[in-house]
Design a protein around this nucleic acid. Sequence first.
DNA 1: GGTTTATAGTTGCAAATGCAACAAAAATGA
DNA 2: TCATTTTTGTTGCATTTGCAACTATAAACC
Lengths: 147, 147
Amino acid sequence: MEKQAKNRDTVRAWAQLHRASRVQLEHVEAALRQAGLPPLNWYDVLIELYWAEDARMRQYELSDAVLLPKHGISRLIDRMEADGVVLRESCETDRRGACICLTQPGEDLLRKMWRVYGPCIDATFSSKLTRAELRSLQKILPKLADR
Amino acid sequence: MEKQAKNRDTVRAWAQLHRASRVQLEHVEAALRQAGLPPLNWYDVLIELYWAEDARMRQYELSDAVLLPKHGISRLIDRMEADGVVLRESCETDRRGACICLTQPGEDLLRKMWRVYGPCIDATFSSKLTRAELRSLQKILPKLADR
DNA sequence: GGTTTATAGTTGCAAATGCAACAAAAATGA
DNA sequence: TCATTTTTGTTGCATTTGCAACTATAAACC
């Protein structure tokens, strides 16, 4: 189990990848919570909408962008809509689903979250890496990131 | 928001890190589920016990090793004990908690899971990286992995 | 057109997770 | 020794997630 000499390095890198991700995310989630802000996946949705044309996207697009299954998105949007940061607007070209729209309060929240999130990335991530290491990660990680 | 030119690369690497981890984990979890096996955190606990002296650990040690809060471990062990793969044995030197012991069925399950897990790492992880990239990750990621 | 298949999204129910409060034992320290 | 604080673990409750079944619309195929 994980002991064959030849795979050993591989498994170590694998484990480090997930540990690094978890550790980093824990920091951010803790910071957001402490600031009385919603969890990170709200940010993920908000920023996607912010980047999208007309600040609107279909749920299946969000689902793809933030790596959440469709029913996960459905309920996440329920909560966010109840909070007023997004809006479901009926879609003319496809009556099966709605367009999810970013509201002004949503954009405000996005900014408020970034003021906590951004510094957190600096403190726990970029400050621990050299420029070269950062570039290296940027080259390697995308290879592991497509589904 | 994430737009300042100077931080841009940083944020991209940050995002890739988490995306890579998520994508990879999804593959493994899906494979395990399809094989009718328990989720990955069972494996994490089992392998830690397997590596431990006398195949036994305290819950706080597991908590630290697998990055799960103590109440998370407590309940995870509940489930695993109910399944017979670990055992809570009273601890002589500290009557507050028990020692978690790996059972024979637990070791069997560990092997069964590895037969799915291992090949999965090859297929979705190592096969996408060169030796040099692997070494690079091994050097960089640990810097991001301590709490 | 009409039938079949695929896609988008919702919902019920069970399982897992997070948070806070709690209990009990151990360590600290006056 | 006795009171205080820390550590270890459990439990109740609310929130979130996962899975499967379902509805409704759209697309594809005769």
